[in-house]
Amino acid sequence: MALDVFTLNEMKDIVESIKSEVNIYKIGLQLLTSEGPEAIRYLKSHGKTVFLDLKLHEISSSVSSAIKSAGRHGVDMITVHASGGQKMMESAVEAASEFPRMKVLALTVVTGLNDQDLIDIGFSRKSQDQVIRLAQIAQRSGCHGVVASPQETEALRALLGKDMIMVTPGIRPEGGDIQDQYRIGTPAHAINSGASYIIVGRPIVQADNPEKAAKEINRQIYLVVTDIYK
């Protein structure tokens, strides 16, 4: 669950309303720059798993220091940009090794970019090809998992194997507004394709009834998982 809000009070209201449905919460740049580590401390004090989505992309020493700071706050998962390169990701994994619970996840290509955007930036590959290339580098670097859209999940699962954590953003319920996302999928599609975790933010945060929205998404996941393990 992505806590796409500005204040601790908003965050607390959301967490309280869906506490029976969600145990893992993503803190992104919006909340962290607004409220700082207090958001992490609140979640950890309530026994929640914290996914800190910093998308780190810097020189290795800076990334290592940020990872260690996050680890001291009890962060369970943290993101780095795979495009930062193998040495940077290796440094991130080494820094995280001080914290046995912490997983380093490599972001491949954000879901707000499409093929034309990549061409404009200067990449010659289409989004899926670029995602696969970066994911392979992340795996060689020792990262525990990758972050990729639902459109690449199936190919990545086949390529990377069953042990690699696969986190899937860009999740929109059937018929939902795509907003600023391009490479999207439904909860059922993502789980069917091999996602370990899905990230859902605004469809819950902006819902009139967040608990009801979270329940419906969990229902869809349950149906898929039940069908897989029949």
Rank of each mutant, 00 (worst) to 15 (best):
E211M: 09
S65A: 15
D117W: 06
I137H: 03
Q220Y: 01
K68W: 04
K26F: 15
Q128S: 15
S64C: 08
V147D: 00
L118P: 09
A135N: 01
I18N: 04
A138N: 02
P100D: 08
D117E: 11
E98H: 12
E98L: 13
I228V: 12
M102G: 13
I18E: 02
A39L: 11
M102P: 07
A92T: 02
M166A: 04
G71T: 01
M102H: 11
F99V: 05
E16K: 14
A96I: 00
Y197H: 15
A190I: 07
Y25P: 05
S62M: 10
L118H: 12
I24Y: 11
I198V: 11
S91F: 04
T226G: 15
V205S: 10
M88Y: 06
V104T: 10
P150F: 07
V15Q: 12
D180P: 08
E35Q: 12
E216R: 10
T7D: 12
S193A: 15
S64P: 06
K19L: 00
S127F: 04
H144E: 03
T79I: 00
I191Q: 04
M102E: 01
S45A: 13
S64I: 01
E16T: 13
Y25R: 06
K55P: 03
R183K: 14
I78N: 05
E152F: 14
A190R: 10
I184P: 05
L156Q: 01
D227C: 00
C143N: 01
Y182T: 12
S62E: 04
I67M: 07
H144R: 08
S97H: 12
L32D: 08
K55Q: 06
D208P: 00
I40Q: 04
Y25G: 05
L43P: 03
V5W: 11
Y25L: 09
E152T: 06
K48T: 03
E58H: 13
V22R: 11
G28Q: 11
E90V: 08
I204N: 05
T79V: 01
D208N: 10
Y42K: 15
Q220W: 00
D4W: 11
P173N: 11
D115F: 14
H46M: 08
G185R: 08
G201F: 09
